[in-house]
Amino acid sequence: MNCEELLTRLTDYSEGAADADLCAAIERHLRECTNCEGVRADLERLSRLCRTCDPPRLPDDARADIERLLRGDPR
């Protein structure tokens, strides 16, 4: 497996969608290629960063508007 092939399959690998042979080939390449291993590690860090984002909240007035809509109340 070369770098280009690996870089197109990294998410298949991290999402558990790669079969055993592909996983083995990816892991072999990652052990030998510091650049690709660096990209893999960065994508993992990116995922972790996202998990720390504050979730947005539906504004109260929008929620109240939808509640009125669901009750069938006129505005």
Binding site: P55, P56, R57, L58, A62, R63, I66, E67, L70
Partner: peptide
């Protein structure tokens, strides 16, 4: 709306 409203937003 109660359970998923924030996620939908």
């Amino acid at each position: 709306l109660r359970d998923e409203g924030d996620r939908l937003f």
